[in-house]
Design a protein around this nucleic acid. Structure first.
Lengths: 113, 113
DNA sequence: CGGGATCCAATGAGATACTG
DNA sequence: CAGTATCTCATTGGATCCCG
């Protein structure tokens, strides 16, 4: 059987809906797993610049994956927290992590050959 | 509890091992799911240029996800097939597809708001 | 502290033309 | 048919400086 020429026509854009494989989305999800975090708290483990972190957080906020809460204090304090929707991403994330953990050596062996 | 500054230090590179979210890898896996396919057969549903398809296939071959078999015929015939390792990617792929199918409307609603 | 503004480098990927 | 060779462009992400 030959492949359907329109096999991927229902994908909307040509990218997957959520850029699940981009550099930051999944790592941010992991960082927020155990509760809300502040901007400066996220910067440290991610080793990300403020600009890129801001862009990533805004994009995830637009998609309903997390919420941004600014408290009118001085110095300013802002907290980011996963929404229930964002939390559902933990499941496919776990599947990818499991695959990676299970097959990483195999890939590295193939790559070095 | 504050975040471990070295939370992601064991990730090797800063990218996930397999670029599971890049534009082509997963789509190619889907195309090869039901058996070997020829180069020209892959081009049609993917709507990809020959150059990019070649690059993607070579990268996946290096990682041991698929095999390339050239038959010494004229006109040339080349077939690509998933390895057992490549086939194991179908599982996390299914998890992502399930998430996308389940939550796509929700994301689109958030995005348009 | 939590950004915004600006500039810049690397990568991915498309278009086009050519070939064994 | 199954590529290769160039060229070009858009996007991502990093560096640096500045601000309320």
């Amino acid at each position: 059987m030959t492949l359907d020429p329109d096999l991927f026509s229902d994908c909307g854009t040509d990218r997957p809906l959520i850029r699940i494989g981009d550099k930051w989305t999944m790592k941010i999800i992991v960082c927020l797993r155990d509760g809300p975090r502040r901007f400066g708290e996220l910067i440290v483990p991610l080793r990300i610049t403020a600009k890129v972190l801001t862009e990533s957080l805004r994009a995830m906020e637009r998609d309903g994956l997390l919420t941004r809460t600014a408290y009118g204090e001085n110095p300013p304090r802002v907290e980011y927290a996963l929404t229930p929707l964002g939390r559902t991403l933990l499941e496919p994330l776990a599947a990818i992590c499991a695959w990676s953990a299970a097959h990483q050596p195999e890939v590295l062996r193939a790559r070095s050959a």
